[in-house]
Design a protein around this nucleic acid. Structure first.
Lengths: 216, 216, 216, 216
DNA sequence: TATGAATGAGCCTTCATTCAT
DNA sequence: AATGAATGAAGGCTCATTCAT
């Protein structure tokens, strides 16, 4: 992601903590996740980052560039974690379960990722569309799914008429919706959705949903 | 949805089109759906509605009240359509398929509903939590699901360990995510997701996912 | 004060309470006294009066005309009460004391009069200057003071070098300031100024101040 | 008046005139004095101060904070002048006369102070009540009056039954009312009240009123 | 005589951004 | 590499007033 031009202040941690640009991005991520793009305040980001507002423009450019950088960072972080997931040594069933659980937990642990995606889609996905960094990074999970599907079908434990990409979207959607809409769902059903018990129940349901569907 | 207090101008459609309050709500729905709450402009809403900005405050109150009214309206509209769906005369399998297809299509045809929910959840669901109108309206679909599950299980065509609410969330999520994130997904996969063919493929996938899972 | 042209709705009390114009003026008096001219709201006046806002413009004209009418009414009311005060049959000393006490109590009982005058002076007194009704109504008190001074000096109980108008302004000022600035004085001195005891003490002080000064 | 927090732009007078905050307060004082709180316009204050309107909110906060700051400044300025008045070396009679003349002239020369107080009282004195700066600053004049009264009574030149606070209020009121209501009084009496001659006459009257009253 | 509906200008406040050092 | 000061444009909301009936 070498995005830093030489005209930009070096990354040498000068006084304390991470370098300025990283602090800015972290602050922006937090602010954007809480308020959305339109609701986020540049002043708030600068304050969160503990820097002068002016530096924000030096390091990143403007609010929109900030959004793009944060979005790319969020995607990159997710892809990085996905890449760390290795199911190649697991049986198709065990591998698929691991993958589903991983995906669900990622959503639970990264609500800011969900918020960002929602807001980006609200904007018509125009930033993602313009981003070189995001566009050509294929989700590693998709490859894993393909591998697991192939092995499972060969072993006769998975049904045959399964589209990998559709399955990927389904796995993601089963967790995403639960997390994204947890506040409204919680209000309407008058149930807490973010207790450990509730999260475990949902995770198990998603697993049995996917595996149940995949039965031959 | 009789929301009109007597302190508000009458609804007598005098000259053209729907009465003022309805026009305002329609305009607000469009603006909010496109821009989100923070991004929406009251001026833009007034202009869309073809009324003086001042009237907006007479008829509804303020931006937040406008949001709440729009949100309640969106929920009410969905519930109304849901109520029109009748699967009681269908077999469990056919009924469940109909229900899934209905839900998927609703998401496709009402992207504004998705946007509203996303933004409401961004705000922590505080408006829904405060709304009398929304809070106690249970989704009719949930009742239908319960009925279908019961009949299907009795007939031996559905598995037994199924939680109706989890299933409802899953059915919704399978369509919601696809629609909500269509722009980013489309960018990343470099595929159009809103062509008739793609939509049909997705709908079929969701159906077979749900029914596949429900097999005993 | 017959200011009503024939083009204006008759004063016939139609349904209940005083006729509309009187209700409007009473409401305006209350609102202006509480908020001042700039702070007063025409809507609030209409609501207080229990009439449609439009009528306010029919009966009086506009906010400024309303102010003038209220101001004239306040002056007229004061003058009417002043006229009722008769000290001609009292001794100079008793008469002067009665006059001073009357004036003090009027201020206490009519805080709205004070507020109106303050605001009118804030505006440079331009309404009073334009008002036929106010301008030529001389304060009856001034005449009484002249009479009392003359009799008292003749009787040798009052000093001789007294200007009636200056004395009038002093008598008024001694009560006015206490009432007008009661909130700030009360804060600064940390004492309640509007208790019956405090008011009595002040009234007595003013009396002894005036009579003490008038001693030969 | 060291009211500047470190979060506020420095006072280094860079180009011309007093620093920004002082200019803002001066402009606000002028505007508030002319229009009252409700009638004052933030835009007008900014323009008078020769600054961008936005800075006003950076330096002071908002309209209400501006009012409070101006009010505190006005009190502080008056107290400062009062403190400079020294009557300890004067005889009771001379000292009392000096004090009365000083107070009268202060009102004449600071009509904005009167306007501020009137408007603050219109608001129920809520800002003064909240202000730490104003609340505990006792008027130095009151102490002087106490001293003069004591010495004068000991010397037998002042009457004995005098309440210092009542006398203070009276002295203030005798000048305040004349100044505060000069426009309406001038209209009603058809006399100019702000000519040097008229002011001198009034001042003399107030002096003889107070000293006349204080005779044993 | 009375009313509900409408309006344009203006108010206080805040925004993202840039200047000057 | 960094900062305090500044700015024009706009944002939500409210005002006094008038229209149409």
């Amino acid at each position: 992601m070498a995005r830093l031009s030489s005209a930009v202040p070096s990354l040498a941690a000068d006084e304390a903590g991470p370098p300025a640009r990283a602090r800015i991005l972290a602050a922006a991520l937090a602010e954007f996740a809480e308020q959305g793009f339109a609701g986020a305040r540049v002043d708030a980001i600068a304050e969160r980052a503990g820097i002068n507002k002016r530096m924000l423009y030096v390091y990143v450019g403007n609010k929109e560039a900030l959004w793009l950088a944060v979005l790319e960072g969020a995607y990159a972080a997710m892809r990085a974690e996905e890449r760390a997931l290795n199911t190649l040594h697991l049986s198709p069933l065990q591998g698929m379960e691991a993958l589903v659980r991983f995906n669900f937990r990622y959503h639970v642990q990264h609500p800011e990722f969900i918020t960002l995606l929602n807001d980006e889609n609200l904007q018509g996905g125009r930033n993602v569309a313009r981003s070189d960094a995001v566009q050509d990074i294929y989700s590693p999970l998709l490859a894993l799914i393909g591998d697991l599907l192939g092995r499972g079908q060969a072993a006769g434990v998975f049904r045959r008429d399964v589209d990998a990409r559709q399955l990927y979207i389904s796995i993601a959607g089963l967790g995403y919706f639960y997390c994204s809409n947890r506040h409204t769902l919680s209000s309407i059903f008058a149930v807490a959705l973010d207790t450990p018990a509730a999260l475990r129940a949902r995770e198990d349901h998603v697993v049995s949903m996917v595996l149940g569907y995949l039965r031959p």
